[in-house]
């Protein structure tokens, strides 16, 4: 069974405790964008046979959305990281490259219009503890 570690609560959960949410780091297109961009945002997915960045929700745990890097051909998990990450962090890239020599990121962290990467990361939410306190 697929197991992922939630980067928020630190629990290593089986897939039955989690809910998959599809490809991550999508660039959002809304009102004002071209029809082509909007269609691509809604429907066109990389769906790679290999390294895949994706969203998961720790639905029967802390309830938070997080991101994971996983190989769809082997089910190997390279790591999980917080949903607020604009790009997969360096340690995730290193973990992928350790397992898949020659694999290169297809995003450009310096550009504003990196393909498939959101320009507008969600702001850090206020931790629930502080609200309760």
């Amino acid at each position: 069974m697929l197991t992922l570690t939630c980067p928020y609560c630190g629990i290593t959960a089986e897939e039955t405790e989690l809910h998959p949410g599809g490809e991550s780091h999508l660039k959002r297109h809304g009102p004002g964008s071209s029809d082509t961009d909007f269609e691509a945002y809604l429907f066109a997915r990389k769906n790679p046979r290999g390294v895949h960045f994706e969203r998961w929700r720790h639905v029967y745990g802390c309830g938070k959305w997080f991101l994971a890097a996983r190989d769809t051909a082997t089910l190997q998990v390279f790591g999980t990281y917080k949903a607020q990450s604009k790009f997969p962090p360096a340690e995730i890239v290193a973990a992928i490259q350790a397992a898949r020599p020659g694999w290169q990121p297809d995003w450009d962290e310096t550009g504003d219009s990196a393909p498939g990467i959101t320009d507008d990361p969600a702001p850090n939410p206020t931790p629930m503890r502080e609200i309760i306190a």
Partner: peptide, 14 residues
């Protein structure tokens, strides 16, 4: 079906 992208021709026990 599984809910996640998958190219392995295996099922899941659950």
């Amino acid at each position: 079906t599984d809910g996640f992208n998958n190219y392995t021709q295996r099922g899941s026990w659950q």
